[in-house]
């Protein structure tokens, strides 16, 4: 059942949700929009289509403690970090980023389950935000994401004057049941919503990268794609800065390190990048010595290895962040297009 709320009432909606759980939503700070905790002072920004960083941070934080080791009377003690136990709501997750969570679920919820991530997934309710005006860098459509019908625990659509709200899961319904400011929709609302969706899909269909050519990228393609001479040409501008991996909603590589707290040692994990030269360094050598190999690994993993292990699911969601953020103008679109050109020669 779809419900509605007038756009002016959004601050009341945020306040009502925040009564129930911590609310995270896109907030503009110093010119950049990212997910942040809401309070009455925050400058919510629903106009920017994509947050600079994806919301993966809320489930797989850039940095998180795992456990602390300390010595008590000569004995080493290990104290595990407590798992998340506060309920939270993430409002405004785009379809691409929501698919990004599906990808992370495949990684962290598969055997053996990562309990830190699992606890956050359990306590988090995701309100997906349908896109009205997809941008040039968007190609979610290539990977089968429907930005006009993104899913999530709740889906919201925002038109000029109205927010439409629909609960999709028991979790989403539970949240909905605790909000009393949502009103009923009528036939006219349904028609407007359907028209909005059609319009959004029409826009995305006309975007330059919306329908990329994925033939030849799949779990069986390892040998041919790995050995292609194209990588040698493609990787050259890469600075190995890792910006693409940090912005990406599906990149999940991490490091585990120590932090000396003064009376013990905290072991924490933090995001890492396969683009870095020391990522695979060992005492006796490195199995990826060149940036070409590291560059190739990132894309082979997203387009070949991950699908091979996950029923064909790609680990790119077409969010376009790497398209917008790489200082050298490299991105997955360039890679896919280069192989398309080669295949159609």
């Amino acid at each position: 059942m779809t419900q509605r709320l007038s756009r002016e009432e959004l601050p009341r909606l945020y306040a009502a949700i925040a009564q129930v759980a911590d609310l995270f939503l896109p907030v503009k700070r110093a010119g950049k929009t990212n997910f942040a905790l809401w309070n009455t002072q925050t400058e919510v920004d629903l106009d920017t289509l994509k947050t600079a960083k994806s919301p993966k941070d809320l489930f797989f934080p850039q940095c998180e403690p795992l456990y602390t080791c300390d010595w008590r009377e000569g004995n080493l003690t290990v104290t595990a970090q407590a798992l998340a136990e506060r309920d939270f709501v993430v409002f405004g997750v785009r379809g691409c980023d929501l698919r990004g969570l599906d990808v992370l679920d495949r990684v962290f919820l598969s055997d053996p389950v990562d309990s830190f991530y699992a606890a956050r997934r359990e306590h988090g309710t995701v309100i997906a935000f349908a896109c009205r005006e997809p941008e040039e860098s968007c190609f979610c459509r290539t990977f089968g994401v429907d930005c006009a019908e993104p899913g999530g625990d709740v889906t919201v659509w925002l038109t000029d004057g109205t927010l439409y709200w629909r609960a999709n899961t028991p979790k989403g319904q539970a949240l909905t049941d605790r909000l009393d400011l949502l009103g009923k929709t009528d036939d006219a609302d349904e028609q407007r919503l359907a028209a909005e969706q059609t319009a959004a899909r029409e826009i995305i269909d006309r975007l330059p990268y919306a329908n990329l050519f994925l033939d030849g990228w799949n779990g069986d393609a390892t040998e041919a794609r790995f050995a292609s001479p194209l990588w040698e040409k493609l990787y050259r501008p890469c600075l190995a800065c890792g910006a693409c991996t940090f912005a990406c909603p599906t990149c999940q590589c991490y490091d585990i390190r120590d932090y000396d707290t003064g009376n013990g040692v905290q072991r924490f994990r933090c995001w890492d990048s396969c683009m870095y030269s020391d990522f695979t360094m060992m005492a006796h050598g490195n199995n990826r010595t060149s940036q070409m190999q590291r560059f190739r690994q990132r894309f082979m993993h997203k387009l070949v290895y991950f699908p091979a292990n996950n029923d064909g699911m790609y680990s790119c969601v077409g969010c376009g962040r790497c398209v917008e953020q790489c200082p050298s103008g490299l991105n997955i679109v360039k890679v896919i297009k280069a192989f398309e050109k080669e295949a159609k020669k």
Partner: peptide, 19 residues
Amino acid sequence: LELRMKCGVGKCGRCNIGS
């Protein structure tokens, strides 16, 4: 095979080769 490892459980990405 011996590759650099961190997590040991197939998630940190470090020891990935092919699938």
